[in-house]
């Protein structure tokens, strides 16, 4: 089963969080996700979006968690 989650990390811009995730080999999407009206309604410039599927491992999820923590320390 797949799961998808959109989030932000403190005040960090979604692209910065995406960059930090990318640096540990985790690919996420960052931006409007073709949903600008929703972003405006939420008052967010952009969000990070991660999706998990059957081929993802727990180790990879752990790497994403570490990247989020790192982004929070660096930029949040």
């Amino acid at each position: 089963m797949g799961r998808i989650v959109s989030f932000n990390v403190g005040k960090a811009h979604a692209h910065d969080v995406g960059q930090v995730a990318s640096d540990v080999g985790v690919m996420v999407r960052a931006g409007h996700h073709c949903a600008q009206p929703l972003m405006e309604m939420l008052g967010e410039a952009a969000t990070v979006r991660a999706s998990f599927y059957i081929y993802n491992t727990e180790e990879e999820a752990g790497r994403l968690a570490k990247a989020v923590k790192r982004a929070s320390e660096l930029l949040g």
């Binding site: 910065d16 960059q19 930090v20 640096d23 540990v24 990247a67 790192r70 660096l74 930029l75």
Partner: peptide, 16 residues
């Protein structure tokens, strides 16, 4: 290992 090359001190200083 996090590659922080993009977020070096001067970048973070000007960002914050």
């Amino acid at each position: 290992m996090v590659d922080e090359s993009m977020y070096r001190e001067n970048i973070l200083d000007h960002y914050k």
